[in-house]
Every structure is written in structure tokens, then in C-alpha cells.
Simulated assay, not measured.
Amino acid sequence: MSVAPTRSFHVRGFVSLFLTLNAILLTISGLLLYVIPEGRVARWAGWHFLGVDKGGWEAMHTIASFAFIVAMIFHILYNWKVLLFYLRNRATRAFSLKGELLASLGLTGLLVFGSISLFPPFGTIMELGGHLKEAWYGQDVQAPYGHAEQSPLRVLASRQGFDLTAALEVLREAGVPVTSGEQSLEELYALSGISPMALYNAIQDDPRTLPAPVPVNPALRDDAAAVAPSGLGRMSLEQVCREHGIALEHALQALRHQGIVAQGSETLRVIGERAGLTPTRIYELIGAAETDSGSRLEL
């Protein structure tokens, strides 16, 4: 009875098959990254495909690219003689594919230059990708500020002006396992499967989360209505406090109470941009500060 000889592992065949499968994976992930939403939109809307979010597809594409490079190096080493055969004529030792080599180099250079300069049709391809990215959700799907889904609910409530306690209650009623204001929408998405955008909309749409009116310092009122002076954004916090008789420390304390860190030398525009608020809103929050004597000014 004859025994079939044991077949050794064919490294060259393995490398070729691995390159082929890796090329298919790179093609799929590359096409997906071409059409899926921008990162900020994908994270906010909770986009995923086949259970993998955009970050996962990006990681898959990057790692597969590195693996492809390594496999290609081995492929060249194992097929070096064949490659030289194509490039040189054994009899004359002269290059036999000069034209083909020059054409390949020229086409590669054209792809590089076209991708950088984006002249047609390269620019058209990128514009088409932009339209396809927007087609998923439209242009209105935007987080209130950059990486809002990563902010603790406490910070998000402060920056967007909603009541944190009521927001936590709204989320619990929706079946979201939220325990404190230190959790972010991104963390709650992982726990509940509800996208950061849907969680945020649930908070914003519930009237219970509307904040109580902020008391405004009578010094900032004009005929019982708060009127912001012109050029408010260019005024520093120190200037506003000095002109309206408010202790700077009390103003800073009022801002810190809202989760806003500021310095007296900063303008209201700078403070507002960092907090995601308008200079007028910062101006109103300052009105909740205590007077120099320590008694809070009431409406």
C-alpha cells in the first residue's frame, strides 16, 4: 500500500494567494472609505457597515496596506529571477521592455501629479466622492461642536445650555444605562446601540431639559431688557466687569459654575468660541455674578 508523499508548504503560492486576498480587502475597504460620511458625521450619526464603524474600516484598510507592502516584498524576492527575465533579454543583456517600463513610470507619475493637482478627471472623482458622502445623511447632520460625542454629559450640558439632571432622566426613560454626567454620548452609544445624534436629539427635544432663565445683573439692563453693547466680542472680561461694577472673581466664579474656564484678559469672543457660546450669552452669564459686597443681584 503506497503512502502519498507529504506535500511541503508552498511559500511562493501562499504569498501570491495572500496578496490576492489582501488586494480584494483593500479594494472593498477603499471603496467604502470613498463613499462613507466624513469622520465627524459618521461618529455623530453612529454609522456602521457589517457591524464595523468608520474607525474600524479605516484601521482595517491601514493594516491591510502595511501587510500588502510586506507581502509584496516577499513576492518580489521569490520572483526576482522572473522579474529580471521580463526586464532583460538573456541574449543581449539589454532591456527588452524599455517602452513598457517608461509607459508604466509615466502613468504612475500622472496618477501622483493628478491626485495632487486634482485636474479633471481626478478632481471630478474626488467631487463625486464628496457628494456620495453627503448623500448618507445630508449636510444637516452635524454635531453641535467638534467631538461633542466624546464630551462628558456634564460638559455638553454646560456648553449647550440644557439641564443635566433632566437630561439624565430623559436618557434613563429611553432605556439608556446612564449613571452620571461623566459619561459621554459615545460611551452611551456603545452601551445602548443608540447613536450619539439620536441621544442628543432626545435630550434637546424634551422640554424638561430647558434651563432655567439666568438672572441678569441689573447693571446690564436697559429699560428692563438686557442690551449687549456694541463691540462686545472685542471687550475683555476685565473691561466688562470694570464698566458694570462686577468683581472679576465673582464673574469668573459664575462662568466656572457653568463649566467655562476663562481669564480676565481674554475677550468675550475668545471665551465664547472655546465654550461654544456667543459673546452675548457669556455677557448674560456674567450678569449672574455676585456684586463686590457678596450679595447676589436679583432681577
Rank of each mutant, 00 (worst) to 15 (best):
F74K: 01
V82E: 02
R88G: 00
G294Y: 00
S293Q: 13
A42I: 02
P177Y: 08
I246E: 11
H147G: 00
A167L: 11
G264I: 05
R242I: 03
S180W: 12
H244L: 06
A228Q: 09
R281K: 15
E238V: 14
A148P: 09
S184Q: 10
S8M: 09
A94H: 06
W80I: 06
I63R: 10
T291L: 13
C241I: 06
V35A: 14
H147A: 15
L110H: 04
P211T: 10
S236D: 12
F85N: 09
K54H: 06
L110D: 07
F18K: 01
L255T: 10
L156D: 12
A135W: 10
H48M: 00
V178R: 06
L237T: 11
P213Y: 03
A67L: 15
R159C: 04
E100M: 14
T209W: 05
F14I: 06
P121C: 06
Q139I: 01
L97R: 14
L25W: 05
S16T: 15
T92V: 08
R256L: 12
L31D: 09
H244G: 12
N89V: 00
T278S: 15
E266Q: 14
W136G: 00
H257W: 12
E298A: 12
T6H: 05
S115P: 01
G233H: 04
F113L: 15
L33Y: 08
S184Y: 08
G123H: 08
A71I: 03
A174Y: 01
G46P: 03
H250C: 07
Q183H: 13
W44S: 03
S2V: 11
P215V: 13
S16A: 15
L26Y: 07
S151Y: 00
M197G: 02
G233A: 14
G272W: 13
W44C: 10
W136P: 00
L87W: 01
R93I: 02
I260A: 11
M60E: 08
W47N: 02
A224Y: 12
T108H: 01
L191A: 15
L185C: 10
Q258N: 04
E273R: 15
F85M: 01
I116H: 13
R88T: 10
Y78H: 03
R296D: 10
Q139T: 01
L87V: 04
A45N: 03
G130M: 05
G193Q: 01
G56D: 10
L84Y: 03
L19N: 11
